[in-house]
Write a protein that binds this DNA or RNA. Sequence first.
DNA 1: CAAACGTGGTA
DNA 2: TTACCAAGTTT
Length: 302
Amino acid sequence: MQQIHNSINRWYSRNARDLPWRRPGVSGWEVMVSEFMLQQTPVVRVLPVYEEWMRRWPRPQDLAAEPLSEALKAWGRLGYPRRAQRLHAAAVEITTEYNGEVPRTEAELLSLPGIGDYTAAAIACFAFGERTVVVDTNIRRVHARLFGGMALPEPTPRASEFARAREVQPEEHQIANMWNISVMELGALVCTARSPKCEQCPVFEQCAWIAAGQPAPHYTPKGQSWKGTDRQIRGAIMAILREHEQAVPERSFLNDLAQESHAKYLALEKLGSPLEQRERALAGLLKDGLAVADEDGIRLPS
DNA sequence: CAAACGTGGTA
DNA sequence: TTACCAAGTTT
């Protein structure tokens, strides 16, 4: 096992990407912002938004002082705007409850909005050097192959996976912390979901999946639906709201846009979604607090 | 616990 | 072109 630890950590030291949130001396806030943005989102899309975000709001209290609408606009097209909402809410809580300092323990981090098991462990480890067991989709996949001999991990994480993740960790604190990021990076760059680059893998010789003859996945991925979903309509509505400083009349979203041909709302018009669905999507955004309604119409929340 | 939640690149 | 996938969290 120690050989595997050494191989992957050595691989990381030579192959790790130079990312802004990995620079020596980064603040807890920098790591935290990166982790929020990286949830379900590729690094290349995060980079430009992250740079502008940190330039504008270098501390939690800087973001906390802004209305939510500014955070949602700066979030742009990163996706899952509720992450921006929760990051803003977390910044407010850090400002009021933690004197503007990002907490360093997993338990405290876990209590903040938008921070679950993975993000709490990641911030505690990467920003503060706390000893944690980080388990993300990359690490789950590497473990499934290297130790489990399977092509992919189970669709939903099992308790046994977390137990195994703890068991395979190096004993020494510093080595274990590097192991967290090393395995994650290996999964992101080499042990990828589709067409893994096994010829580049530092633990090819020890891999249980290779030894088993690279068996195919024992299940077929469920797939994420998108076309014609409420999510698509919500995204289109949010895109419109981000572009309008003033409230947008509610009827602009609910009328038969195809016939009225409002050029401004082309994004919704092209979707040709049923009225009922547009109503449901808008109601969902209002319920989630990602949009608000007043006498003038719909706008981003202050 | 399954489902909902955005977006754009890649095969 | 369709489908998968990317540093998950919440309900």
